[in-house]
Simulated scan of single mutants.
Amino acid sequence: MMRKLRRVISRTYRRATVDLSHPARSPLGSTVVNCVVYEDGVRQPCDGDAQNALRQVRRSDGRGFVWFGLHEPTALELAVFAEMFGLHPLAVEDAALAQQRPGLQRYEPVRGQPHGDTLVAVFRTCRYIADPQSPSGGEVVDTGDLMVFIGSDFVLTVRHGGHGSLGPLRESLEARPEQLAKGPAAVLHAIADQIVDDYLAAADAVQHDVDEVETAVFSEQAGRHDAGRIYQLKRELLELKRSAGPLERPIRALATTPLAPAGPAMQPYFRDVVDHLTRLSEQLASFDALLDSILQAHLAQVTVAQNEDMRKITAWAAIVAVPTMVCGMYGMNFEHMPELRWTYGYPLVLTVMATACVTIHRSFRRNGWL
């Protein structure tokens, strides 16, 4: 299935020569969430036509860029943008397939694209939401995919999943034109910063659940379902690590090395994102270690509780063994047995059994078995 889809994307990419200026022949549909032109950090009037927006930017002598936002585009739609911006086929293929490992790649221009290299950043968006399949109302980490293509005069964002909308981020950037004036790299930084902040918010929510589980495990009402909740939290931590862990190295590269089209002006901003990622990785590592300790403590408590139950069962079995033994002896029906014809034999035997049982019970209570 994957190979077939790759062939379709590659074939579509080679044949994509569509005139976007003609609406009737444009393959771009509802997947284009936004088409915005910025010049010197200020939003410019735009008729929404992709080709016209690109021409408008390239007439601004490097003072502006265009930002296209796509949501779950088809292979044909991606191929059209690849033709417009000279994107590498491998990057376009990854954007269509989604579920890629977070990271950063730099591609040289293809098909005679004269505007320099293209940086492709892959992110995993996430949110911590209630699990609809959990009867106890637990929460899980829900992830999506976001790929960001940036060139010298364009930003192309490709989003997969039902969350991670960039609308609020765009509005926040437009309120700071001096930041947008730094170009497409400023958009890449803002996206990376928001995604890492979302990771931190999810980690804080996980910390709240870890604290609740810790309290429950060491409370008197600790139950057998605690182990399942601990395992679920470790699984959500693993999902967060898969999303955030691979990002630290590429973001650090942006913070320390001038990578066109990012440039050195944005390095201090990316260093701030690296600091947040470092804090996040340390936080997740501490949660993981804490959950391991909580799980071990819970298993130790279960073992102690089982030992307590076995001691109580053994103690009662020992108490019951005394009358069982006496009754078993007198139930043999032999003719010559002690005190068979004595008037007080039966009360005496009952008294001996009761005395023995009480003595053994007091001994077990004294030793903490009962």
Rank of each mutant, 00 (worst) to 15 (best):
P184E: 01
P184F: 00
A186F: 08
A186V: 04
V187N: 06
V187G: 05
V187S: 10
V187M: 12
H189K: 11
H189P: 03
H189N: 13
H189C: 11
A190G: 05
I191W: 11
I191M: 09
I191N: 11
D193S: 14
D193N: 15
Q194N: 14
Q194Y: 09
I195R: 11
I195L: 12
D197M: 05
D197V: 03
D198H: 08
D198W: 08
Y199T: 07
L200R: 03
L200V: 04
L200K: 01
A201R: 12
A203V: 05
A203L: 10
A205M: 14
A205V: 12
A205G: 12
A205I: 13
V206D: 07
V206S: 06
V206C: 10
Q207P: 11
H208N: 14
D209I: 05
D211H: 12
D211T: 10
E212K: 08
E212T: 08
E212C: 05
E214K: 00
E214F: 00
E214G: 00
E214P: 00
T215F: 04
T215D: 13
A216R: 03
V217P: 00
V217F: 00
F218Q: 01
F218L: 04
F218G: 01
Q221W: 00
A222Y: 01
A222V: 01
A222G: 09
A222K: 01
R224K: 15
R224D: 15
R224P: 08
H225S: 15
H225W: 13
H225P: 10
D226P: 01
D226W: 05
A227H: 07
A227K: 08
A227Y: 05
A227G: 08
R229F: 11
Y231M: 13
Y231I: 12
Y231R: 15
K234W: 03
K234I: 05
E236T: 01
L238H: 07
L238E: 04
L238K: 05
L240R: 03
K241M: 14
R242G: 06
R242C: 07
R242Y: 05
